[in-house]
Design a protein around this nucleic acid. Sequence first.
DNA 1: AACTATCGTTGAAGCGCTTCAATAATTTGC
DNA 2: GCAAATTATTGAAGCGCTTCAACGATAGTT
Lengths: 337, 337
Amino acid sequence: MVTLAEVARHAGVSASTVSYVLSGKRSISDKTRKRVRRSIRELGYHPNAGARALASSRSSIIALMVPLRSDMYVPVMMEIAITVSTTAREFGHDVLLLTDVEGPTAVRRVAGSGLADAVILMDVELDDERIPLLKEVGRPAALIGLPADASGLTCIDLDFTATGALCADHLADLGHREIAVVGEAASVYQRHTGFAERTLEGLRRRSDERGIKVIHRPCEGTYESTAGTLTRIFGERPGTTALVVQNEAAVGPLLSLLWQTGRAVPEDVSVVAICPEQVALQSSPQLTSVSIPAQEMGKRAVELVMAKIDGETPQELTLLEPHLTQRASSGPVLGTR
Amino acid sequence: MVTLAEVARHAGVSASTVSYVLSGKRSISDKTRKRVRRSIRELGYHPNAGARALASSRSSIIALMVPLRSDMYVPVMMEIAITVSTTAREFGHDVLLLTDVEGPTAVRRVAGSGLADAVILMDVELDDERIPLLKEVGRPAALIGLPADASGLTCIDLDFTATGALCADHLADLGHREIAVVGEAASVYQRHTGFAERTLEGLRRRSDERGIKVIHRPCEGTYESTAGTLTRIFGERPGTTALVVQNEAAVGPLLSLLWQTGRAVPEDVSVVAICPEQVALQSSPQLTSVSIPAQEMGKRAVELVMAKIDGETPQELTLLEPHLTQRASSGPVLGTR
DNA sequence: AACTATCGTTGAAGCGCTTCAATAATTTGC
DNA sequence: GCAAATTATTGAAGCGCTTCAACGATAGTT
């Protein structure tokens, strides 16, 4: 391996000069800078990551922790992970992919060892056990998701309360009076992940204000469970004219089942989904949806930790404003008057 | 931060002793080992990753490179990534998540800088541009997928040729004489990713041997394209009694469409899928399938690079044997006699 | 012309660990 | 009981870089 010292010798300058050319932390004359750059190129020099980390006590690595048993839809997780990685690169950082097989103490390990300069936590639960550890190690961190107590933490998430309200408004505007929510698996609500409950709360409150009746049924997302959920919904509330779906896995089965049971979308039933753009676009008919801004969240999370690494103190809570895109699956109520 | 020297002082031993307790590379008396361990615990010591990497020239990091424009089904990618991460941890290593936004030279960067001890490449194409770089840097590496020229490389993949043959055999055994392949998007074949072509080749050859007619049509995986593909298949070959699907995205639409067009599965049409177990199980009816062994591939890839790091020379090519699980979607040909 | 700033460059210290060679302590063989 | 072999421990060198303090050289100020 070529070392900095060899580059220095080759360029006829001191080691520190090479270092400063690399970091740009001191002014270097154009002439020497070019000479050094040339030597670097000719020798194929790559600064040693370990030595750098040791000398500067910065690893240029961000740890990204994904919980194994996650409520997140896998493609969304992946999209966030990829975005985090590419955004981190723009800041000259790399991303360490951490799971919690070793338990939440993985946080302590990577932060305590100086392996990572910062930590990003994905899919944060209301009472997430990784949070105390995060505070203990005192490294810059950002959470994707919203814990019960976000004080002193930097969090980013979609504003799910507003999302729920937005769906209610959209359907109310179209004249719907009875709507049903096809939700996440029951376990998601039991584990109090937060986002599902916040959505429901926002939707219920706005529906109340606008005089709309709401029922909510969780759904596992399989064909069978979706069928059961639909049966129960239309059994208990035959007047239901719209469905809000917050469960990516249930989208496909749901549309199939509506078709099979002779309910036309959107003529008989309007469908609004809270899901990634792609799922909405790939469905038939294409779904009116509030999309999950995976890339935005990943990008912001990195920007936030980078700011913190640079000693800034960014705002604690970033709630991304939801946007509803109307597509073919929702329309005005017909024929019931 | 607590340093090794402080631990040594606290335990009343030399620094090297602490180091040897940590690494186990020299025998240490039970007494001192316990004392050192205790000091480590009491002081909350974590060895500094950078210093370790510098002194030992091993970073304990494996780079995992996922191409951005990937033919892989996202959940499979994620499953591999997670498995790689957890398996790496079992070997005391961490995983760096790399994309190719910075180009294939990312390989050079992480290997050249000593950031990573080894590299795992996902979703390798037949003529992958990352491969020359990999050879250049000379670090231990493993490829998930099979390039055109695998000589000198360590590759692991599902034996797709055998997979194709297995599907053909299964359907032949059930009495089918005309089958159709609903394949990946046309672009996948054009880009010569390999696995799709190998599947087709294995299936065609075995079908020839068993006197079965095969047609193959690519499919984008959307509702519309799947509908088009099916129409063409049954238009050109009305006698088709079985479908082999190698396209996760098309599975859902395909089943819906068969239902909608009045073709019962498996009575009228048998369906065999090449897809992750989960997709097969979540479909209705559950699909006879050859599963994509994502975890196995991830695990093996790590084991292979770890062996190489330890100076071993594992076999170049590992082709995982496919397994077909019969479920509700395939059955004997009925009524055509 | 003497003085202070600024710029460009450098030597040297040191980041925290691993590991070699050497030494000290203990066990073994006879 | 003593030499030899084995086991346990240590001091010191050094991994490749960053960065501080200091330097000479050039430019600006009066």
